[in-house]
């Protein structure tokens, strides 16, 4: 009996040890297979992937510009860029306007009481600054000379275009362009929805609604939700035949729900457009024919929208554009807090 139990006991102990070891190994395998920390991904089939990588790649043959300069901005939140007389570069952000010479040296700074949303510079050097609900005007020396009346709580000013005798102010909140005289008197509204007359109005899903004066004397207004650019006389009459734009994620069109987010006009009347979502800057002919890419997503700091990540609503940073009398293009890259200066590639560098 004794002998028998002595010989069974070690075997039994060995068996228990083996079972415990196997269980431990099985446990480790199960843990590894179940991937509790999620490092091996969701395991969802490919149909659940959302991938814009192929749309982000730009054919190098389509890129007609190269970066020739850069202005680093000492601003936390740069918002807008504009070009004024003598090709001086104006940047709005934080609570200030910074002014740079064409050679990128800093000239001066205008301190503001609040965060600017947009800006434009008139031919006389007057600086028009769009706050959330009103326009402030500064003379070339940086002295505030006018504070236009508030446009109310709904107003979200996004762009300003000064002309000879008018100033046009894009208001994404009210979905119209305000027409002012240069003294700040409101003369009218452009593009208001009027169902009886079959006017759909501007479609502005997010607060990116740009305007610019073209050398042909017509105002250009982006209708972002329709992916179109409209033309208006300074009296506010629409020039329908001059409307252009195509909705497409392909390079020749405007991508996403609403684009372009920004436009600028070259001295010869051609258009520069900037898109959000897939940050890309392109040049179109004066009639809207696609010409070339100025810069693609690889040029810009990754923006929340360019990484397909969710983001804090209404705090999206989007590129802004301006062009000088030489045809140089200025792109505000807000996340990198810099202005990229781009010029057409020379024949031999293509």
């Amino acid at each position: 009996m004794n002998q028998q139990s002595q010989s069974t006991f070690p075997k039994f102990g060995l068996l228990i040890g083996l079972v415990v070891m196997l269980a431990a190994v099985a446990g480790v395998i199960v843990v590894l297979q179940t991937n509790p920390f999620g490092e091996q991904g969701s395991g969802l089939p490919e149909s659940f992937d959302y991938d814009l990588a192929k749309y982000r790649k730009i054919d190098p043959a389509l890129i007609g510009y190269q970066q020739t300069g850069e202005i680093a901005l000492a601003m936390k939140e740069p918002r807008a860029v504009a070009v004024g007389p003598e090709d001086r570069i104006y940047v709005a952000g934080d609570r200030a306007i910074c002014i740079f010479a064409p050679d990128e040296t800093k000239l001066s700074r205008i301190a503001l009481d609040d965060q600017p949303q947009c800006l434009a510079v008139g031919r006389d050097g007057g600086v028009y600054i769009g706050m959330k609900d009103h326009v402030e005007v500064y003379d070339p020396s940086g002295t505030r000379i006018a504070d236009w009346q508030s446009l109310g709580d709904r107003a979200v000013l996004t762009s300003i275009a000064p002309a000879e005798q008018h100033v046009f102010v894009a208001d994404a909140g009210n979905r119209i362009v305000w027409r002012y005289d240069t003294n700040g008197e409101r003369l009218g509204r452009i593009g208001e929805r009027n169902e009886k007359k079959g006017v759909l109005g501007f479609v502005i899903p997010s607060p990116y609604f740009d305007v610019a004066m073209a050398p042909d004397g017509l105002l250009r207004v982006v209708n972002p939700g329709a992916h179109r650019i409209r033309a208006y006389t300074v009296e506010g009459e629409e020039e329908t035949p001059l409307e252009w734009g195509e909705r497409s994620i392909g390079i020749e069109g405007f991508c996403g729900c609403c684009n372009p987010a920004a436009i600028a006009i070259l001295p010869d009347g051609r258009f520069v457009t900037g898109e959000k979502g897939i940050p890309r800057v392109k040049v179109y002919g004066a009639l809207g024919n696609f010409e070339c890419v100025v810069a693609g997503p690889e040029t810009f700091a990754p923006m929340p929208t360019s990484t397909e990540e969710t983001r804090v609503p209404h705090k999206l940073k989007v590129i802004d554009l301006a062009a000088d009398s030489e045809g140089r293009i200025f792109v505000l890259d807000p996340d990198a807090r810099r202005i990229c200066i781009l010029e057409p590639k020379k024949e031999d560098s293509k």
């Binding site: 659940f48 997010s206 729900c257 684009n259 959000k276 979502g277 397909e308 983001r311």
Partner: peptide, 18 residues
């Protein structure tokens, strides 16, 4: 709850899907 639409909305739109 796969989040594919959330990505699409956030990539271009206002991020209203979450």
């Amino acid at each position: 709850g796969c989040g594919k639409c959330v990505k699409g909305c956030s990539a271009f739109g206002n991020g209203s899907l979450f």
